[in-house]
């Protein structure tokens, strides 16, 4: 009987291994473990055994029953799971359910990048009105009345005393008049120039200016700060130059050019920033002792900088606000 038990177990196991679905598993169960199954039949034989042989086989038979039952259960749950997963088929290649993040305008993003570079250097951020007085926009900034320097900035006038600011420098004046040095601030904002609208110029643009005033602020520090910005913004390898220029509100003044080489075109120097040491007249106009304090200021246009960075060839694109443009950034 031992041999038969062993054979039966082997037979069951090899047949069980062949089973691939629940239906044949059930057939297998009936064949071995059903009421007329071959393992059940062994128990019937067992009942007929003489009393003294019963203990010998009882144990073996029970083990057989348990192990086959366990194997069966295991297989059943395995097959159950398999069939369930086949029934619940999901087409995961369907598109996801849409949700949209919006976008900041590329000019805002560019300004944000610029701001963050300076904020790390400890600069505060100040704002001011766009509709300004001649005093804050020109006079306090050392633009003599009736001087050709005023031609550098074509101005929209509301009347002879009020105008649309041509730069964010009036914010510098307001700051210097309201707060004692040390000053360390940037002034982002919209400015206006009365220039014919074309691919290259628009009647308004955005600027970021900066101002530092303290007891020992130097031209060398200005150069270092500005070049740090240029490298952070355009990349460590950017080729730049720092050359003398003129602004009524700074002296000495400089302009910063970067070397620009669009693909397939000749390279050239492009102005990206004007800067200089705050003119003593401007400091004095704001009640700051120009012997004790020195300062530097810088300013740059956001539109043109972003045009270079992203290869945008028409400044008007920014203000058309075509959604296809907006969502690119």
């Amino acid at each position: 009987m031992h041999t038969r038990i062993k054979e039966l177990e082997n037979q069951f196991n090899s047949e069980l291994a062949e089973v691939t679905n629940l239906k044949s598993l059930e057939e297998l169960r009936i064949k071995y473990l059903g009421r007329k199954g071959s393992i059940t039949a062994l128990f019937d034989e067992f009942k007929e055994l003489p009393k003294e042989e019963k203990p010998k086989y009882g144990q073996v038979l029970n083990r057989l029953k348990n192990s086959t039952q366990n194997s069966f259960n295991e297989k059943k749950s395995l097959l159950n799971e398999k069939e369930k997963s086949q029934k619940d088929f999901i087409d995961l290649s369907l598109p996801g359910i849409k949700t949209n993040l919006g976008t900041k305008h590329i000019l805002t993003q560019t300004l944000d990048q610029m701001k963050s570079i300076f904020k790390v250097l400890g600069f505060s951020v100040y704002e001011g009105p766009e509709l300004e007085s001649d005093y804050y926009n020109f006079e306090a900034l050392n633009f003599p009345d009736d001087h050709p320097a005023r031609d550098m900035q074509d101005t929209f006038f509301v009347n002879k005393d009020f105008l649309l600011r041509t730069h964010t420098s009036p914010v510098q004046i307001r700051l210097m008049q309201n707060k004692k040095p040390p000053l360390r601030a940037i002034m982002p904002g919209k400015v206006f120039r009365n220039e014919a609208i074309s691919a290259k110029s628009y009647c308004l643009f955005h600027q970021l200016e900066g101002l530092v005033v303290d007891t020992d602020v130097t031209f060398a520090e200005l150069k270092a700060t500005v070049i740090h910005f240029v490298k952070e913004f355009f990349g460590e390898d950017i080729k730049y130059r720092f050359r003398p220029s003129f602004f009524p509100f700074t002296e000495p003044s400089a302009e910063v050019d970067i070397w620009w080489q669009p693909k397939g075109k000749e390279g050239r120097w492009l102005e990206i920033m004007g800067c200089g040491m705050v003119d003593p007249n401007v400091l004095e106009n704001c009640g700051i002792d120009s012997e004790k304090y020195t300062g530097y200021a810088f300013g740059m246009g956001v539109e043109r900088t972003a045009m270079r960075k992203y290869g945008i060839d028409d400044i008007r694109t920014y203000f058309d606000n075509d959604k296809r443009f907006l969502i690119q950034f």
Binding site: T99, N100, L101, G102, T103, K104, H105, L107, T108, E130, F156, L164, K190, F192, C203, L204, Y318, F319, N321, K323, L326, I327
Partner: peptide
Amino acid sequence: KLVGLGFNEIITNSL
């Protein structure tokens, strides 16, 4: 917050 709410920013002429 507006970007998070799915809005696209525009900048238009003040004139």
